[in-house]
């Protein structure tokens, strides 16, 4: 992390390590908005929301959809832990709309069901934002 002018970004999902790349800067979709990371960022652990992870390198900007999870910034790299990492093209607007519809229709009467519903809503909205 502190090594020179690049950030080492590693994305792991429960299935495998999806991405292991060096970049100049990256933007993370946090639970409450975007967070930029530059080389030398102080150590941090944070919750991720549903949105785009953007990697800025000399060749240009690349982006992926991150499906919730956490991020851990250490002195040797940025570790993103998420359930799924998708290319923005892989997100279909129609199915995202359907997901949102289903999430809105969920009946939430207890705190547990409410948190399930909120999560589903945030997930569907995040997908919808990207697909448009």
């Amino acid at each position: 992390m502190s090594s020179g002018t690049s950030v080492h970004c590693i994305v792991v999902t429960p299935e495998r390590t999806e991405l292991d790349a060096q970049c100049e800067a990256l933007k993370l979709p946090m639970y409450d908005g975007e967070l930029g990371i530059l080389p030398g960022r102080a150590p941090m652990v944070g919750r991720l929301g549903y949105g785009l992870l953007k990697l800025q390198s000399a060749t240009g900007e690349q982006s992926w959809f991150v499906d919730g999870g956490f991020v851990q910034v250490t002195r040797d790299g940025v570790y993103v832990l998420t359930n799924r990492l998708l290319k923005p093209e892989q997100i279909d607007r129609k199915s995202a709309e359907e997901e949102l519809q289903r999430a809105t229709e969920m009946v939430a009467t207890t705190p547990q069901t409410r948190s399930v519903k909120e999560r589903a809503l945030a997930q569907a909205r995040g997908k919808l934002r990207i697909s448009s």
Partner: peptide
């Protein structure tokens, strides 16, 4: 090697909120 240079982590939003997420994620894994 890292234990002698302990990192003081910043938690966003806070430690308990992260824990709330980490435990189910860990269970799923």
């Amino acid at each position: 090697q890292e234990s002698n240079v302990r990192d003081d982590y910043e938690f966003l939003p806070n430690a308990s909120a992260i824990l709330e997420e980490v435990v189910p994620a860990s269970f799923r894994a």
